[in-house]
């Protein structure tokens, strides 16, 4: 039972502070799920980012569902984590819709984003550094894949890059 309460509280917190679309979520999951609670290894976390990029839906929902299942081994865990992640959005959005009907952009909220936008970039940059570890980069072949994908990113859609690097990994490491 405790694990369900922990999952609920943890994903509620992530949902509450998930500013700036999916990007801040990645940082919050890396900290709370990987480092603090250890529900995922850095390797599994990287795999979830890859799965999110190649399946439908926002990464926050994907991660919550996946972690909820793996941490408890049941679909109920997946539901609890996903619901907790969405709950802050539901509450805040319904309150705003109810009181404001039509929303007018508030200048103070806009000011906060002057600081939030660069900060969110920094959050992702830190995750990049944290994921550049021995679990994800096992040998020189990993470095080659990293460089090829980095330079191809401008022209090719992420889905194809992930599928292509999966194929490359299978060919390079199986034979």
């Amino acid at each position: 039972m405790d694990i369900y309460i922990d999952l609920f509280l943890c994903f509620f917190k992530i949902g509450l502070f998930a500013f700036g679309g999916g990007y801040a979520v990645i940082s919050l999951i890396q900290h709370d799920i990987v480092e603090v609670n250890g529900w995922l290894s850095a390797k599994e976390f990287t795999d979830i980012v890859a799965i999110s990029q190649t399946t439908p839906g926002p990464i926050g929902v994907n991660a919550a569902t996946y972690v909820g299942y793996t941490a408890t081994g049941s679909a109920i865990g997946a539901f609890v984590a996903t619901f907790a992640m969405l709950l802050p959005s539901i509450i805040l959005m319904l309150i705003i819709c109810y009181f404001f009907g039509k929303f007018h952009q508030n200048k103070y909220i806009e000011y906060c984003f002057l600081g939030l936008r660069p900060a969110i970039i920094g959050l992702i940059a830190a995750v990049c550094l944290q994921l550049t570890n021995k679990e994800n980069f096992i040998d020189y072949k990993s470095a080659v894949i990293f460089l090829v994908v980095l330079f191809a990113s401008k022209k090719i859609h992420p889905i194809w890059l992930i599928l292509g690097s999966g194929l490359a990994g299978w060919l390079l490491y199986s034979f």
Partner: peptide
């Protein structure tokens, strides 16, 4: 083996998204 290929690619995609976000602000 498939995921051993995908993991460095994911890090590269994230580095690229940092780069494109920096250009936008």
């Amino acid at each position: 083996h498939i995921f051993q290929g995908i993991r460095p690619a994911v890090v590269a995609l994230m580095v690229y998204s940092v780069w494109s976000m920096i250009k936008k602000i």
